[in-house]
Design a binder for these strands. Structure first.
Lengths: 135, 135
DNA sequence: CGTATTCCTTACGTTAACGTCAACTCCCTC
DNA sequence: GAGGGAGTTGACGTTAACGTAAGGAATACG
């Protein structure tokens, strides 16, 4: 059995991905994850791990869990109906366009901030000099 | 008096920037804005407008209002002390590094999503064909 | 003068995304 | 068989960023 097919306990998951048990149970409640059960214990599959990675990445970009849930459907195609799939696809395309727009704004902001930092650095340097001169 | 120096009422602000009065009062309470008063009414200055724009942009990038408040200090240099200014500058540089890291991840995510969309589009097209053929 | 509009303050309500705590159930081991 | 961990299910608490509603002041209009 390849290592990637290992089932992980909640603790292993937490240590691996730096999340709390509460978080994983919360994601399950929100139907973002669906671990197996052994008795009442959760066992997380390869699929859960892949999804969790995407969830965490999505969060870093400021997506809500609900939005992420929609994106996850893209990675879970197989049993879906055509129309539903097409809808999901449309959503993903919109999201992609959003992200591209956001990236552009982001680049602007990075440039702005960089310039501002340069400016302040200059100011700081020159006032330090004039202060020296005054003493 | 140049138009940029006009004082704006709360409603003008709301219409211009598509925010609610509550939001503007909230930002004032958090010391992100500091409009003048005429009696008890707020009058927003050019400076408030500039700051509001930055606040809104910061929000689009997922910054918290507290983080934004720190960045705003960069745009309000003049009466500050050197040490305080230097600290602010350090914060801004970290923030810039964060943003650059985030941009890289972001680009990856955009590529991933794009590929995924292509893939699904393909799948959708070919299953549609085979479905046609089966009928 | 009445009332309509715009604004104000105060204060409680709401949503997302968990944190925290109590009370249980297994399973292991000493 | 008493205790110790790891895991479970409620259920209430928390923070950020406002929404919303109640009640009052100031100005404008007919």
């Amino acid at each position: 059995m390849p290592d990637t097919d290992r089932l992980m306990t909640i603790r292993e998951m937490c240590d691996t991905y730096e999340v709390t048990p509460r978080t994983l149970r919360f994601y399950e409640a929100k139907e973002l994850l669906s671990p197996n059960r052994e008795g009442q214990k959760r066992l997380f599959t390869r699929r859960d791990r892949a999804r969790l990675k995407l969830i965490l990445r999505g969060k870093r970009f400021g997506f809500s869990l609900e939005e992420i849930r929609q994106l996850l459907e893209l990675y879970h195609v197989g049993d879906q109906q055509q129309t539903q799939l097409a809808r999901t696809l449309a959503i993903a395309k919109e999201r992609l366009a959003d992200m591209e727009r956001q990236r552009n704004e982001f680049n602007e902001a990075i440039n702005d901030l960089g310039e501002q930092i340069d400016w302040v650095t200059q100011t700081l340097a020159s006032t330090a000099v004039s202060k020296d001169a005054a003493e």
